[in-house]
Write a protein that binds this DNA or RNA. Structure first.
Lengths: 149, 149
DNA sequence: GTTGACTCTCAAGTTAGGTTGAGGGTGTAC
DNA sequence: GTACACCCTCAACCTAACTTGAGAGTCAAC
């Protein structure tokens, strides 16, 4: 065991901590998203502690809708000596706009779904053959139509 | 031309109106999401006018994060004689929760991205080798860490 | 000094949501 | 009656983001 491996984490360890699959971490390396420090004589991967929060960042960003390629872009711009600003700024601005529109649609649909829950199934489920099968879909359709700006 | 085809739309027509690819509409039929009325002696697909708003609904729902399978579930429950309520209600409730969390994360990241734009590139792009390469990533990391509830 | 958990590479498979292409019918306008 | 745009099926392909499996090396413990 070399000194340089002090404080580093093996792939299985960081996988467990971050709740990520080992195979996913290897995949991130393959696509150039997350390189391990990897000093072992054998080809074992070793990761820094800071990689834990970077992996958390990847997950959040992914959840919000960034692709791994976009995340990679941000990172690679940071790591190159060049100014990362123009590209990242652009990416950020476009993502904000996109997310805003999604939230708008989402709120609309949330309202419709809530209305559906209240109207259609207040206490017990509505019975079939009562002329009340479910009004939700049409309501949603109406809002959907109106919201097509 | 049969009488029964009056007012119906051919696949290319409804595709154009809704901004959907013909191949996508055929795919929707294949997975049982959207059946055409399809009365032609040849196997031409014919769609009702109401399908236009249904296709719009599909697109909105998809954009928000429903899978085609989920959309199909909602629809098939509606079309069966059975009460659609329990399943759809459950689906709706879970989606609302999920969307709420996404909006929270999204707002956090939006804040970070905005800060980045203001701090890092107020007028002109920051130059490299000025000790100011880009502070955004670390800031995002911090919020990301904090927001891990 | 060997067992057993862990790691490696490399190739192939998976899922969703489609697209593309070959090979061939349809329908209507001139 | 023939162009020509449109439609059909079926199979194969595509992308992202991984997962799975085979076959083999590694390491800490007992």
């Amino acid at each position: 065991m070399e000194n340089s491996l002090k404080g580093l984490l093996k792939i299985g360890e960081i996988a467990k901590i971050t709740g990520t699959a080992v195979s996913a971490l290897r995949y991130y390396e393959e696509i150039g998203l997350l390189k391990p420090t990897c000093k072992s004589g054998a080809k074992y991967r070793y990761y820094k502690k800071e990689d834990i929060s970077f992996i958390a960042f990847i997950k959040k960003a992914q959840n919000i809708g960034f692709s791994l390629d976009e995340i990679k872009l941000i990172l690679s711009e940071r790591n190159s000596g060049k100014s990362p600003c123009p590209k990242v700024r652009d990416l950020a601005q476009r993502k904000i706009t996109e997310l805003r529109e999604k939230v708008k649609d989402l709120k609309l649909m949330e309202r419709d779904l809530k209305k559906y829950i209240l109207n259609c199934c207040p206490e017990e489920d509505s019975k079939p053959d009562e002329g009340n099968v479910c009004k939700m879909i049409d309501k949603v359709k109406i809002s959907t139509k109106l919201s097509q700006s």
